[in-house]
Computed example of a mutant assay.
Amino acid sequence: MGFDRETLREAVKTHGKVTRVVIAAIRGSSPREVGAAMLVWKGGQSGTIGGGTLEYQAAEAARVQQSPTRLSRHALGPDLGQCCGGAVTLLSEVYDLKSVEALDDTVIARPTAGGDMPLSVKRLLATARAQGIAPEPQLLDGWMIEPVHTPTRQLWIWGAGHVGRALVDVLSPLPDLAITWVDTAADRFPADIPAGVTVVPAANPADLVHHAPVQAEHLVLTYSHNLDLELCNRLLTHGFHFAGLIGSATKWARFRSRLAALGHSPAQIARITCPIGDPSLGKHPQMIAVGAAAQILRPARQNDLKKDQSA
Results as ranks from 00 to 15, higher is better:
residue 70 R to V: 15
residue 118 P to T: 12
residue 235 L to K: 04
residue 262 L to P: 00
residue 242 F to R: 01
residue 249 A to S: 12
residue 152 T to N: 03
residue 188 R to Q: 15
residue 287 M to I: 05
residue 254 R to K: 12
residue 245 L to P: 02
residue 153 R to N: 02
residue 207 D to M: 10
residue 30 S to T: 06
residue 57 Q to R: 10
residue 67 S to Q: 15
residue 198 T to M: 12
residue 223 Y to K: 04
residue 136 E to Y: 04
residue 190 P to D: 08
residue 88 V to L: 08
residue 265 S to M: 07
residue 249 A to Q: 15
residue 150 T to F: 07
residue 303 N to A: 15
residue 245 L to V: 05
residue 267 A to Q: 10
residue 184 T to G: 08
residue 196 G to L: 11
residue 276 I to M: 04
residue 178 A to P: 05
residue 248 S to T: 12
residue 179 I to L: 13
residue 297 L to C: 01
residue 201 P to Q: 09
residue 129 R to G: 07
residue 305 L to F: 10
residue 62 A to Q: 11
residue 233 N to R: 13
residue 291 G to R: 04
residue 43 G to S: 09
residue 205 P to Y: 05
residue 213 P to N: 11
residue 177 L to K: 05
residue 183 D to T: 05
residue 46 S to N: 06
residue 201 P to W: 08
residue 187 D to K: 05
residue 47 G to H: 08
residue 31 P to K: 07
residue 287 M to Y: 02
residue 266 P to T: 09
residue 84 C to N: 03
residue 297 L to T: 00
residue 82 Q to F: 01
residue 227 L to Y: 06
residue 234 R to P: 02
residue 85 G to A: 11
residue 7 T to G: 14
residue 227 L to S: 14
residue 220 V to D: 06
residue 310 S to V: 14
residue 255 F to C: 04
residue 184 T to Q: 12
residue 211 H to E: 14
residue 232 C to M: 13
residue 252 W to R: 14
residue 19 T to D: 04
residue 296 I to F: 00
residue 9 R to K: 09
residue 108 I to L: 13
residue 168 V to Q: 02
residue 6 E to D: 11
residue 194 P to S: 12
residue 203 A to K: 13
residue 280 S to V: 06
residue 166 A to W: 08
residue 206 A to G: 09
